[in-house]
Design a protein around this nucleic acid. Structure first.
Lengths: 340, 340
DNA sequence: CCGCAGAACAAAAACGTTTTGGGAAACGCC
DNA sequence: GGCGTTTCCCAAAACGTTTTTGTTCTGCGG
């Protein structure tokens, strides 16, 4: 016998009344409502989720797809994002489901399957590309979704992102103030929006200062990628005296490249990252970086998605948050720039 | 009209036949089955999950709770585990749901809610403690669950773990062979099984070599924790010449402590970690560490859980995998040990 | 005293599947 | 030709809720 039915008959009531009492409807006497509530509490009653979902036509579930970029998804940031999303959604009574794409090309198909199978009320999407077919598809499908990051599109989509452009422009200006002139940008593939935006910030600040933004490298957003890219950069002439890296992982690889050629980071070559990984405070020298409060971003994204599921329009939800600079020892005066 | 009903009527069949055709039952003519399959394909039909789950009495969902240890859960390992679990469960048609505990004390309550609300067919549990109430509860509740790691209990529970004891014993022996005598263990809290087991391996190898395992430190499994712990150790007399750290994050903090006092890791002090984080290959010097293939562990755990859900008994599922040593530059001959 | 409104509860439908228990037609066998 | 067996299909029940649509009182105004 269904749990609800058992509860009802034990109380001598109909399941209708019990259900409505638990949902706090007004058409059940206060005394009865309380009696039902206590009994439900005592019996530890919970409505059967599948039954509820079937009846309601809602899945009470939101989903996130881990990008299928082998070796790239392991960024600690995702963990923090997941945790924040999880707690917020849980508080709202929604389940958070995670899928993993096996490869980048499989990703779109996964999203497609997700919405077609009607297993989810909403989707959280991250690691955006400048031209992002996933976002196009989701927007077209009409399913509520929120995005961590940005993309280039004319349709409105709910998102939160760090202001990488401003942050990298600021960082560039700070380096210029320290006397640097040859400042390189070491980015991830520019098809990723975050990488492109950060490059734009760097390039704009360079031009504003009358400098030419010549050194641009695209590489994998890993330590290995950073190592290879910076190795190459340090062989170019004129040799950059400062390196603006799109991520901390790239910068950590860059640090090693600097050491490899006998230079000292923070003195001969300044280097800056982004993400403020926990390891970045412990590199040698400690890495200058930038910080976006991922947990807060996650919570905000969750709230946006809840609103969208509730029927709100995506149009109002577009937020670009400031990124906090974190100065550490890996940046300093340009060599030969003279005292402070 | 339900999708199934629509499909059936468009084919001039009953929903029974369509359902059975799609499930590949033998009591529907091959021709009909194919016809149905093609039509379903064309209509992009998927059974409504909630309806299916209600009827089947299965949630087709498994869950994992992110430990509510603020600042501790961000270990990249979890990401890799999640990805592996996700792909394997997805292949089996199960959804992977993640919850996040807000604090360690809230964790047990979360598991309780999880099983009581009947929202999940199985649970994956990680970050085990020597005395782990979560495992006791789950075992008692009868829900299928698998564990990454071990715990001390008399009940059988399905698990996969790295053989930290053997790995740390081996590492200790290697350090002894390099001439080290004062070898310290820098662990996480010993209430975590992994930390206790690794300490046991170290201690056993020390005693086997006639050395006294005196230097044991418990600290947070973070870079900060490692920094503080190693700082203290380097002030003790006799000063350890080698440090066996329970995790890479601890070791990364330790590296900085070594540098702080003007010593050189790999020459004056050897240091070893565990986890083989991507950053560990890029520390200065590169960190000697150990590697457990987390993705494979995840896949295996998923398979175990599938078997358990299928009715298998937990008794047979207990695996302890070897951990591969990764030699890098942070270990070397003990000072004054004389050439090889 | 009649009728009516409101309060408190209940019967039944609906959500979209899967599966049980047939049932009709075709077939093989004596 | 009758009879059991297969083969193929279907009607209906069931899963456990929520919600729609009543129904039965009670109290009250006229």
């Amino acid at each position: 016998m269904s749990a609800l039915r058992a509860l009802a008959s034990s109380l001598g009531l109909s399941i209708t009344t019990v259900s409505r009492a638990l949902d706090g409807y007004g058409d059940v006497a206060v005394a009865t409502r309380e009696r039902v509530r206590r009994a439900a509490e005592a019996a530890n009653y919970r409505p059967h989720p599948a039954a509820r979902r079937l009846r309601l036509g809602a899945t009470e579930t939101v989903s996130l797809v881990l990008p299928g970029d082998p070796g790239h998804f392991d960024e600690p940031l995702y963990m923090e994002l997941l945790a924040a999303l999880g707690t917020r959604f849980d508080a709202a009574g929604l389940d958070l489901m995670v899928l993993a794409a096996r490869s980048p090309n499989e990703e779109l198909a996964l999203y497609r399957r997700l919405v077609e199978s009607r297993r989810t009320d909403g989707i959280v999407l991250a690691r955006t590309r400048v031209d992002d077919p996933r976002i196009r598809y989701l927007a077209e499908s009409g399913i509520p979704f929120v995005v961590m990051g940005r993309t280039e599109t004319r349709v409105a989509y709910a998102h939160v992102d760090g202001d990488g452009t401003a942050a990298f422009a600021d960082a560039t200006r700070r380096l210029i103030a320290l006397g640097h002139r040859e400042i390189a940008y070491v980015g991830a593939s520019l098809e990723y929006t975050f990488s492109k935006l950060r490059r734009d910030g760097w390039a704009a600040a360079m031009r504003d200062a009358g400098l030419r933004p010549v050194h641009v490298t695209e590489t994998a957003a890993t330590e290995e990628g950073g190592l290879a890219a910076v190795r190459a950069l340090l062989r170019s002439t004129p040799r950059p005296t400062a390196l603006l890296c799109a991520t901390d992982r790239i910068a950590i690889g860059g640090l090693r490249a600097i050491k490899e050629v006998g230079l000292t980071a923070g003195r001969d070559v300044s280097i800056v990252g982004h993400d403020n990984l926990s390891a970045s405070a412990f590199t040698e020298p400690a890495l200058t970086t930038m910080d976006l409060p991922i947990a807060k971003v996650g919570t905000r994204l969750a709230e946006m998605l809840l609103a969208l599921i509730g029927g709100a329009a995506a149009r109002g939800f577009a937020e670009v948050w400031p990124v906090a600079p974190i100065e550490r020892a890996s940046t300093g005066l340009a060599p030969g720039a003279g005292g402070r």
